[in-house]
């Protein structure tokens, strides 16, 4: 094996990257894997469907302290066509969970608005569980100018 200059540089870069990778799991920020685990727990083995659920969030949020988000699910809110709960997750916050809305037939429509914190630019995920077990997902990227989780 020839030890070219290019090869030496590549190896050095690899060695430098290794400790960084080892540090990642202990970082204060939730990983995409942790979010995925929460999605799997919520879905309970159901395949994620798209459509019906709409997550509305600003494309750019100047202040990560209060980012308005709205979830809306197309549903008659009767019988089997009823939304039981909607979970909101943020992939790159210190903790991924944001809120879980629980709806009933008395809600009339499955829609809710709240304000959330975002530590940095990231994907916000919404999941809706229907009475018949179907799970819908929607995802939006929100660009954050000033993070909202304090130092």
């Amino acid at each position: 094996m020839m030890m070219t200059r290019r090869r030496v540089l590549a190896l050095a870069a690899g060695a430098a990257a290794l400790p960084v990778l080892q540090l990642l799991p202990t970082s204060a920020f939730a990983s995409v894997e942790e979010t995925q685990k929460m999605i799997d727990d919520f879905a309970g083995g159901q395949e994620l469907q798209s459509g019906k659920l709409t997550l509305t969030a600003p494309e750019i949020a100047e202040n990560g302290n209060t980012v308005p988000i709205t979830v809306e699910v197309e549903s008659a809110m009767e019988g089997d066509d009823l939304v039981q709960s909607v979970m909101i997750l943020a992939e790159d916050n210190p903790r991924p969970e944001v809120a879980t809305f629980n709806f009933t037939a008395m809600s009339g429509t499955a829609a809710a608005t709240t304000r959330m914190r975002l530590a940095k630019t990231q994907n916000v995920v919404a999941l809706a569980k229907m009475a018949d077990g179907t799970v819908y997902m929607d995802k939006k990227e929100v660009k954050v100018t000033i993070g909202g989780c304090g130092g």
Binding site: A90, N93, P94, R95, E97, V98, A99, T100, F101, N102, F103, T104, M106, S107, A112, T114, R115, M116, R117, L118
Partner: peptide, 9 residues
């Protein structure tokens, strides 16, 4: 209607 809140609210 009810909601479980986490610190990200």
């Amino acid at each position: 209607f009810s909601c479980d809140l986490d610190p990200a609210i």
